[in-house]
């Protein structure tokens, strides 16, 4: 039997020439274009919603900063937790939330921004 070295790729090249497949769905083009047209119709509404999401995001950031500044100033404890600990926990969650929201808003922006 003929031994073929795995680095010798002539026979594979020859075999692979017949490996092209044809998309077996006649309506594929129309289906893609229909999907694109639907998204184009939705685009203005999505962009408007995105604008609102940015506004609420900045409002939330302002509130979050205020809370994290004011929280340590509370006298006494809240449910037995010292205000310093409460502020630290809040700040960790706040920073995480801000990063997650920024990521989500930027991906939505790049996905839906107009192409021109």
């Amino acid at each position: 039997m003929k031994t073929v070295h795995p680095h010798d790729d002539r026979d594979i090249r020859e075999l692979m020439a017949s490996a092209r497949l044809e998309l077996p769905f006649d309506d594929f083009e129309d289906s893609v274009m229909e999907h694109i047209n639907r998204e184009e119709m939705m685009r203005p509404v999505v962009l408007q919603t995105l604008k609102l999401r940015w506004i609420f995001f900045f409002a939330g950031v302002v509130c979050g900063v205020l809370i994290s500044v004011l929280l340590p100033a509370i006298e006494g404890s809240v449910f037995g937790i010292p205000p310093g600990v409460l502020a630290a926990v809040f700040q960790v969650f706040f920073v995480l939330l801000v990063f997650l929201q920024i990521d989500s808003l930027l991906s939505a922006k790049s996905e839906w921004q107009p192409k021109i």
């Binding site: 092209r20 497949l21 998309l23 893609v32």
Partner: peptide
């Protein structure tokens, strides 16, 4: 020209499917 994207779909659909 949104409809021009059809040319791209036509050109690459079989290879993309493979």
């Amino acid at each position: 020209d949104r409809d021009a994207f059809r040319v791209i779909v036509c050109e690459y659909q079989d290879m993309a499917y493979s």
